[in-house]
Design a protein around this nucleic acid. Structure first.
Length: 708
RNA sequence: GCCCGGGUGGCGGAACUGGUAGACGCAGGGGGCUUAAACCCCCCAGCCCCUCCGGGGGCGUGUGGGUUCGACUCCCACCCCGGGCACCA
């Protein structure tokens, strides 16, 4: 019952689509947004391929296979998403997206402002090394530099071998070897605790603020992948440094006066600087600015912004996926496949055995080619692209899938984009939704998409997942319930209604909670009602009070369901259908029989309102009743006059407890409401015959009497 | 540890702005229809207690406090569940 415009069907593995995915890759390559580099990458032993950071879960496992991800040094292709870190962060503010998703993206991008500067490597008495070695550090707190009592490098830091002193070399090498063997997960298992392992290098660095040397350590709490892979350590104002200093017996010097009564260890808050030379007396913000100005003045550093976000590793050692359209030539190096030779298609006679290398590497006809530049023998790139590349621009292709001279024309993209309402699961919060935003911005800047198109999806709704036995139901997990059997027994409409009725669409639900029976019964009742199979049949007459009541209920239904649709509250809309159907059943079966016109109008309203949710049944019933198509009718509109009620059930409370319910005219005033409330015997019994001390009247719904 | 969600009957959930807690449905109980069963139709139903069988009373939205005439809803503290981030300098 879903409706699609099949002219706009897009198939991401088709030659047509791959042509444009590769074309975009080449534009990225030209613009420096795609590059190849050797780097430690995530390797999934189960999938036998590398993964992007975004595809590794918090526990270090693969989001697809669940295997523990390993680190490998490999030459791979990356997309330079970090060029867009600031835009990706700032433009979140203008999006009508769930805060949760925006927060996740902000955390993932992880922007932090600070400073980077060089420190000269020295010996213990502060004499610089003859090779002039220095190390660069990043800090968000340059204002605390006077409190630096030591410095730390990551064990993988490239300068470790050159700065280590001879007497420390064997210890350092042993420490580095242990760190190298540990996976990231093992390395983090210490969980920020006190057992901070480290190793002195024998070298010192000169603190440019004090001019004094401080010892240089290796420690695995400093990561090569963030900042410069080296830090200045200020134990007094950083808890990790505090822990390390405590374990290794290093001095701690406070440079910010903690507040009165401070009993904690490292103090990271704001305060007056002490022991800090030219920063003494200043607060945090002004000290940071002054410290950066000092570094710039000395010519040894500057203000710097760092991100947690890494470039997107897009190479995959898989057969499926779009081939990366480059050729390696012994003379010309990395050469782009010319546009007019796209798409580069994978052959289909390939051995799929997972060897850890792309299957395409073992296909000689594919592998061996000629260089587009010199015409000499060359080999093709055999890795393919992450399938998330395909999904990063498909929405642009929807705008104009028949375009054969570009992925999309600016005109078509201008006309359709951005997507007004996007719907997907939260599991894409920092995968697809981040990649698609990056692609949109990059393609706009490259002139492929309109320049003004900064964001692909204006509004986002994150629907919940269907779980089965605790796990999310998904294609890759294979724990699916096939709908065919339900289509045979209950029908597509009952299945659709059951999904809508089970709860709010943003919530996860367990499949066990999806009850088809109630929805199936409801549709059968709607059927019998619409076909006149309930009661003795209608009669013609002037409207009675009972008829008018049903008429009013019909209009209340229209108003209520219309509002429910607008606020995405489909479960309550279905409940309203059921409630109204139950009421019409009683009406149709009453001894005085229903009024023909009243019943017909009410059933019609029900069919029109339910049509989007139960398209097949309502279409059939509507055609039987009217001979035309329910989906071509206009939406019913509630008559405001019929929404006005004459009487209301007024609740009377004594001391906040409900003691009586009385029918009162809707327009009753406070004085009259109070009089009616006090006239109630039940209320009088609870007041014990005494007058109330206080009366709160909220006519017409409620009167609360406070006993004396 | 930090940041988001969430916790309501046996179950899924409703209560939209502080004003009748538990709509609607499932499962359950009673009655009708039927030779019988299923289907279908009607009714009951938060928990506990009392009842002269008309009804009456108390308790109740994770826990403990608070604000208010009145709290599922607002505030404070805590517990539990789910998710995200996490030695990011």
């Amino acid at each position: 019952g879903a409706v699609y415009d099949w002219r706009r069907q897009v198939t991401s593995h088709s030659p047509e689509y791959q042509r444009w995915t590769q074309w975009i890759f080449l534009r990225f390559l030209e613009a420096g947004l795609a590059y190849r580099r050797n780097a430690p990458v995530n390797w999934c032993p189960g999938c036998q391929t590398v993964l992007a950071n975004e595809q590794v879960l918090a526990d270090g496992t693969c989001e697809r296979s669940g295997d523990l991800v390993q680190k490998r040094d490999l030459e791979q292709w990356f997309l330079k998403i970090t060029d867009y870190a600031d835009q990706l962060l700032d433009d979140l503010d203008g999006l009508d997206w769930p805060e949760r998703v925006k927060t996740m993206q902000r955390n993932w991008i992880g922007r932090s402002e600070g400073a980077e500067f060089d420190m000269v490597v020295t010996d213990a008495d502060g004499t610089p090394r003859s090779d002039g070695a220095s190390i660069r550090v990043f800090t968000t707190r340059p204002d605390t530099s006077f409190g630096m009592t030591y410095a730390v490098m990551a064990p993988e830091h490239p300068l470790v071998a050159t700065i280590v002193t001879d007497d420390r070399r064997s210890d350092v090498e042993a420490f580095v070897a242990v760190a190298a063997k540990q996976s990231d997960v093992e390395r983090m298992a210490a969980d920020g605790g006190l057992d901070k392992s480290g190793c002195f290098t024998g070298a010192y660095v000169r603190n440019p603020f004090t001019g004094s040397p401080v010892p240089l350590y290796l420690a695995d709490y400093v990561l090569m992948g963030y900042g410069t892979g080296a830090i200045m350590a200020v134990p007094a104002e950083d808890q990790r440094d505090w822990d390390f200093a405590t374990v290794h017996g290093l001095p701690i010097v406070r440079t910010i006066q903690p507040p009165e009564g401070w009993e904690g260890e490292a103090y990271t808050g704001d305060g007056v600087h002490i022991n800090s030379g030219f920063l003494d007396g200043l607060g945090k913000a002004e000290s940071i600015a002054a410290a950066i100005a000092f570094l710039e003045g000395e010519g040894i550093g500057e203000g710097k912004v760092n991100y947690r976000l890494r470039d997107w590793l897009v190479s995959r050692q898989r057969f499926w996926g779009c081939p990366i359209p480059v050729v390696y030539c012994p003379t010309d190096g990395i050469v782009a496949v010319p546009d007019d030779q796209l798409p580069v298609l994978a052959p289909d006679d390939v051995e799929f055995l997972p060897t850890g290398e792309s299957p395409l590497r073992h296909h000689d006809d594919f592998l061996h080619t000629t260089c587009p530049v010199c015409g000499g023998p060359a080999t093709r790139e055999t890795d393919t692209m992450d399938t998330f590349v395909d999904s990063s621009w498909y929405f642009l292709r929807y705008c104009e899938p028949w375009n054969d001279s570009a992925p999309v024309s600016a005109e078509a993209a201008e006309s359709w984009m951005p997507v007004d309402q996007y719907i997907g699961g939260v599991e894409h919060a920092i995968l697809h939704l981040m990649y698609a935003r990056f692609f949109t911005k990059a393609l706009a800047d490259l002139g492929v998409a309109p320049k003004e198109l900064r964001e692909p999806f204006s509004r986002l709704f994150t629907q919940g997942m269907i779980r089965l036995g605790g796990d999310k139901m998904s294609k890759s997990k294979g724990n699916l319930v096939a709908p065919e059997a339900i289509l045979d027994t209950d029908g597509a409409d009952a299945l659709r209604l059951a999904h809508l009725f089970v709860g709010p669409p943003q919530d996860d639900v367990d499949w066990e909670g999806v009850g088809i029976e109630g929805c199936s019964r409801f549709l059968h009742r709607l059927w019998r009602l619409s076909c006149g199979e309930v009661g003795e049949g209608p009669v013609d007459r002037e409207p009675t009070e009972a008829d008018a009541a049903v008429d009013a209920a019909t209009h209340r239904l229209i108003a209520r369901v219309t509002e429910d649709y607008e606020r995405w509250s489909y479960n309550t809309a279905v409940a309203a259908f059921m409630e109204h159907t139950n009421e019409l059943y009683r009406y149709a079966q009453a001894p005085e029989r229903p009024r023909r016109e009243t019943l017909a109008e009410s059933v019609d309203a029900l069919l029109l309102l339910a049509a989007p949710m139960a398209p097949h049944v309502t279409a059939e019933l509507w055609e039987r009743r009217h001979g035309n198509h329910v989906h071509e009718q206009s939406w019913p509109v509630a008559d405001p006059a019929k929404l006005v009620v004459d009487t209301v059930t007024m609740v009377v409370q004594v001391n906040g407890k409900v003691r009586d319910r009385i029918e009162v005219p809707a327009g009753v005033d406070a004085a009259e409401a109070e009089r009616i409330a006090l006239a109630s015997e039940k209320v009088q019994a609870h007041l014990g015959g005494n007058p109330p001390r206080k009366v709160i009247a909220r006519p017409p719904q409620l009167v609360n009497l406070v006993a004396g």
